[in-house]
Design a protein around this nucleic acid. Structure first.
Length: 579
RNA sequence: GCCGGCAUGGCUCAGUGGUAGAGCAAGUCAUUGGUAAUGACUAGAUCGUGAGUUCGAUUCUCACUGUCGGCUCCA
């Protein structure tokens, strides 16, 4: 109910925006202006382009206009009347066509002097209900979201009942900015991007540690769950992609390499075709199934330039990808094993996730009865798992139903990461078969599954989730040793060696700075433990005959004096447990 | 790709139609300091690339490249 009210407020604010724009630029053509998840927008066709600097002006006009918006009234009009009214506005005319075709009534909603073709859903007393609003940004958007249509100017805004709520929302936006992984990645030296290879990451030494730790964890899980790793070619002749169907459906999104006249290669955008080749490379028996092949090859996709976005959308990435070849009756068991794997692999990050179950789309391959069987198998496992999931009707892949993982980060944003897809199609394209126990040949079914999805993207999400302050097992530097003066250099060196020998990722800060500056720097680098070493520690160590160190955490907690061997023990446990 | 913004030393940013400035980072020296910045000095930029306008362009115009916000939300 609350939500509905908020939607009404926001939709009313969209009307208000349209009214204000018309008062300033009367020749502007109006199109549509719905409420959306966190606010509203209105798409305009301006005669002259406007800019961000115009937003405050529009806001002022909105405030002025709102003053005499006491209520919304509406009336129904005839088709002729509506057409006459919008005779110069092709967008509204198109809408009228559709409404008439659907046999619905044409209604006009009016507040103050402003009347707009609209289905309804407004607040009853706009000038009381719209307590606070703000225009946020300007963007281009195609009429009806279709690239072939005119590009309109979209103005985004948001509205709330109270100023406090608006402030909170704006604060959340600030918080998201503060967590920007592109910014943090640069600050703590994880990765850079360079214009010579747009959309591809240069992983720096510290970023590689992070990457490899995550990768090592997935490999541990592979072992545990009966996966075998393979490595497959990066460049494949176009014939491979013709067989898989990618050449006809996916070529525009692929990098291709043309060698001479007759040889054309595609740079692999996904591992599936190679997995099919491996399956086919020898005679398979039902005894071999399930055959679980993990492949973490580098993938390249020629994403449209405008969609690139830090680590979130890159043109080069790896997935924790695997293909599982199974018999029909394994679907349910295998899927529940995958679900268990997901649970275990998301546990260390302290984040919740939910699942989106995509079912048969309008255009699908294969037999409807196979789909029905597969869907019900997946759904019953989903139900048993007790995990939160929702059905996205018709959003499965054309080759099979799928389940996507949507994970929620520390500030409640939701990210699509992993995906599990059942595939009836590739086995057909590649004519895969195995010998069944009864001596007949059968076709396997394939699960494509990636639990973190793109490792780059997942790491991007983790950077924002942790604001760069990774748990010890992931932290590129786990301990920073900060000597107070060079009187204790030898002692610091000795402690440093012991950390190193224990396998801890440790750095020794020998720079000529005050202890305050060293602490500040290590803290900004988000090093979990700072080991401060001065004359006190040294003499205390000499007194008791063991190394005594003093530890402070990156969030300012002073753990006081500790015995080095004990601290090594506790940090080792922390790393093992991934806490 | 399309719409709009942005592009100045490694980073963050200021600035001007007459060939540039700060802070941080870096280097040198002094300082030997106890839990978030010790001080001084030095070096470092043909102002993203190309073209145009101009006596003269980092500044104005155009194109290109890169990057950021959008391009799913349906009167």
């Amino acid at each position: 109910m609350e939500n509905e009210k908020l939607n009404h407020i926001r939709h009313s604010a969209a009307h208000l925006l349209a009214a204000a724009v018309l008062r300033i630029w009367p020749d502007t053509k109006l199109t549509i202006g719905p409420a959306i998840e966190n606010g509203f927008y209105y798409d305009f066709d301006f005669t002259d382009p406007i800019s961000d600097d115009d937003l405050p002006k529009i806001e002022k006009m909105m405030a002025k206009t709102l003053a005499d918006w006491n209520e919304f009234t509406h009336r129904e009009v005839s088709e002729q009347e509506a057409r006459e009214m919008y005779k110069d506005n092709p967008y509204k005319l198109e809408l009228i066509d559709e409404i008439v075709q659907k046999g619905e009534a044409l209604t006009l909603y009016k507040a103050g002097y402003f009347e707009d073709l609209c289905r309804g859903g407004h607040s009853e007393e706009p000038n009381k209900d719209i307590g606070a609003f703000k225009l946020l940004s300007l963007a281009g958007a195609y009429w009806r979201g279709d690239e072939k249509n005119t590009m309109l100017t979209r103005i985004y805004g948001t509205a709330f009942v109270t100023q406090t709520e608006l402030d909170e929302y704006l604060h959340m936006l600030e918080e998201a900015k503060r967590r920007d992984h592109k910014k943090i990645g640069k600050e703590i030296d994880l990765f850079i991007m360079h214009e010579t290879s747009p959309g591809m990451t240069y992983w720096l030494p510290k970023g590689v540690i992070l990457y490899n730790e995550l990768y090592a964890f997935t490999r541990e899980m592979y072992k545990k769950y009966g996966y075998q790793e393979v490595m497959t070619p990066q460049l494949n002749k176009k014939e491979l992609y013709e067989t898989s169907g990618h050449w006809s459906h996916y070529k525009d999104d692929m990098f291709v390499a043309n060698m001479g006249e007759n040889e054309e290669f595609g740079i692999k955008p996904m591992n599936c075709p190679n997995a099919m080749v491996i399956f086919k490379s020898k005679t398979r028996s039902y005894n071999d199934l399930p055959l679980r092949l993990a492949d973490t090859s580098l993938l390249h996709r020629y994403e449209r330039s405008g969609t690139l976005n830090g680590l979130f959308r890159t043109r080069q990435f790896r997935q924790d990808d695997a293909h599982v070849f199974i018999m029909d009756d394994h679907i349910s068991d295998e899927f529940s094993q995958i679900m268990q794997m997901i649970e275990e692999m998301y546990a260390p990050f302290n984040l919740s996730y939910r699942l989106r179950f995509g079912t048969r789309p309008a255009k699908f391959m294969g037999e409807q009865k196979d789909w029905d069987r597969a869907e019900s198998a997946l759904e019953s496992v989903l139900q048993q798992s007790g995990k939160e999931y929702f059905k996205a009707q018709g959003e499965g892949a054309f080759y099979g139903p799928k389940v996507d993982i949507l994970m929620k980060d520390a500030i409640g944003r939701e990210w699509q990461t992993g995906t599990i897809q059942l595939d009836f199609q590739q086995p057909k394209n590649f004519e895969l078969k195995y010998s069944h126990s009864d001596g007949t040949e059968k076709m396997p079914v394939v699960f494509h599954r990636a639990i973190y999805g793109s490792l780059e993207r997942f790491l991007g999400v983790l950077i924002e989730h942790y604001v760069g302050a990774f748990p010890v097992w992931l932290a590129p530097v786990q301990v920073a040793i900060l000597p107070i003066s060079d009187k204790v250099t030898d002692f610091a060196q000795k402690v440093y060696e012991q950390f190193k020998d224990s396998g801890t990722r440790v750095e020794l800060d020998m720079s000529n700075q005050t202890i305050g500056a060293k602490i500040r720097e290590a803290t900004l680098q988000k090093v979990p433990y700072l080991c401060i070493i001065g004359e006190k520690e040294e003499s205390e160590s000499n007194r008791v005959g063991k190394e005594i160190i003093s530890i402070r955490t990156r969030d300012g907690r002073d753990l006081g004096n500790l015995e080095l061997s004990e601290f090594l023990e506790s940090i080792k446990k922390e790393i093992e447990k991934k806490t």
